[in-house]
């Protein structure tokens, strides 16, 4: 059962996908997307773990270079920033939708659209 971190990240990914498909409120869909991003980032960092490895920084306390894999950490650095950019854009789009239709619920949005037309 040493792969428990993989199972945890997959379960969080599943929760995120469940949230995107099942939630009606648009803001909850955005948060579920953010949960998916987080789960994938956890998974990628876990892929790089080497048993008994240390943080990949040369310093006075690591005379021998027994490090974990630094490349997934560099990938996750970029992925987190991209997730932040997407979240910021989604929030501003939601502000626009809320101003135009008055609510963030797709049912009420449909009603408003039919009234306009």
């Amino acid at each position: 059962m040493s792969n428990i971190i993989y199972y945890v990240s997959f379960i969080i990914l599943g929760i995120g996908i469940y949230g995107v498909v099942s939630q009606k409120n648009l803001f909850k869909q955005l948060i579920s997307l953010s949960i998916i991003d987080t789960a994938v980032n956890i998974f990628i960092v876990a892929l790089g773990y080497v048993e008994w490895g240390e943080a990949p920084i040369y310093s006075a306390v690591t005379p021998v270079a027994k490090f974990v894999d630094p490349l997934p950490q560099a990938l996750v650095l970029t992925a987190i920033v991209i997730g932040v950019g997407t979240l910021a854009l989604g929030s501003v789009l939601l502000m626009h939708i809320d101003e135009k239709y008055g609510s963030l619920d797709p049912d009420e949005i449909k009603d408003t659209r039919e009234v306009v037309e």
Binding site: S2, Y6, F10, L13
Partner: peptide, 23 residues
């Protein structure tokens, strides 16, 4: 949808990646 995806991840994807820490 979430079930199909989890089945794919745990059933097909997990066996091909190395064990945690065993790199």
């Amino acid at each position: 949808v979430a079930g199909v995806f989890l089945y794919f991840l745990i059933g097909q994807f997990l066996p091909i990646i190395p064990d945690f820490g065993n790199v």
